Amino acid sequence: MTGAPGPDVVVLDYGSGNLRSVVRAVERAGASVTLTSDFDTALAADGLVVPGVGAYAACMQGLRAIKGERIIGRRLAGGRPVLGICVGMQILFSGGVEHGVETDGCDEWPGLVTRLEADVVPHMGWNTVEVSEGTRIFAGIEDERFYFVHSYAARSWDLDTNDRTRAPLVTWAEHGGDRFVAAVENGPLTATQFHPEKSGDAGAALLRNWVASLA
């Protein structure tokens, strides 16, 4: 007898790379996964994963072409979980600046994504993170290392809830003396700057934690 199927998760297909490895990783975490750009399917799923590889402007162009920013906004308005990965996290901020050109993001969080100010860029490889107290996605893996590949990041956290709502849990990392946001847990909206699908056992555990939260 097989077990009950896991939560229904859509990996949003908007032209970004690395999609198949994300699909496989989320499947291994216990979800039933569909790779699609279909608006209604993405809206209805138990969880939505927004991956992202490459340039900020290109990712936003691809996202807008399938009304992805509306999918994300409507899901969050209804309290339905979304997980952004790498550039899929960066596009959740107000905008991104690359080569002097600013591109509007999804504006779920205030702040700009800018180039890292470190001697060696891109930041590529394994790194530790400073996990926020009360975390759910890092439960049991607070001291592990995760795999990063990026030249840009949110280097400040500008959302002020004024104690009106529960403050998001912000996890930080550092590269070459430059501190940046490595992950955010904000109600139904979760995001990681690193790639959990490339982060071995620690990344697999993080994805299992997220999939378990969809039940």
Rank of each mutant, 00 (worst) to 15 (best):
T2P: 11
T2E: 11
G3Q: 07
P5I: 06
P7I: 05
V11L: 02
Y14P: 10
S21Y: 06
A25S: 15
E27T: 11
R28E: 07
A29W: 01
A31L: 06
S37H: 13
D40Y: 09
A42I: 06
L43S: 07
A45C: 15
D46G: 14
L48G: 09
L48H: 09
V49Q: 09
P51A: 10
G54A: 08
Y56H: 08
A57D: 15
A58N: 15
G62S: 06
G62M: 09
I66S: 12
I66N: 05
K67P: 02
K67E: 14
G68R: 06
E69P: 03
I72H: 09
G73E: 12
G73V: 00
L76S: 05
L76P: 01
R80I: 05
V82G: 13
V82A: 13
L83T: 10
G84I: 05
M89C: 02
I91V: 15
F93V: 03
S94R: 12
G96Q: 07
V97T: 13
E98N: 05
G100V: 11
V101R: 14
V101K: 13
V101L: 14
E102P: 01
T103L: 06
T103W: 04
G111D: 11
L112C: 12
V113R: 07
T114P: 09
E117A: 14
V120W: 00
V121N: 11
V121D: 08
H123N: 15
H123D: 14
M124K: 08
G125T: 02
T128H: 12
T128S: 14
V129Q: 01
E130R: 14
V131E: 01
S132P: 03
S132T: 08
S132L: 01
T135V: 06
R136E: 13
R136S: 12
I137A: 03
A139E: 13
D143G: 00
D143L: 02
R145E: 05
R145W: 01
F146H: 02
F146D: 02
S151L: 10
Y152T: 09
Y152C: 08
A153C: 12
A154W: 05
A154H: 06
R155G: 14
S156Q: 12
W157A: 13
W157I: 07
D160N: 14
A167C: 02
L169D: 02
L169R: 15
V170C: 11
H175D: 05
G176V: 11
V181H: 03
A182T: 10
E185M: 10
N186T: 00
N186A: 15
G187S: 12
A191I: 04
A191T: 03
Q193W: 07
F194N: 10
P196M: 07
K198W: 03
D201E: 15
D201R: 15
A205H: 04
L206I: 03
R208Y: 01
V211Y: 01
A212T: 04
A212F: 04
L214W: 08
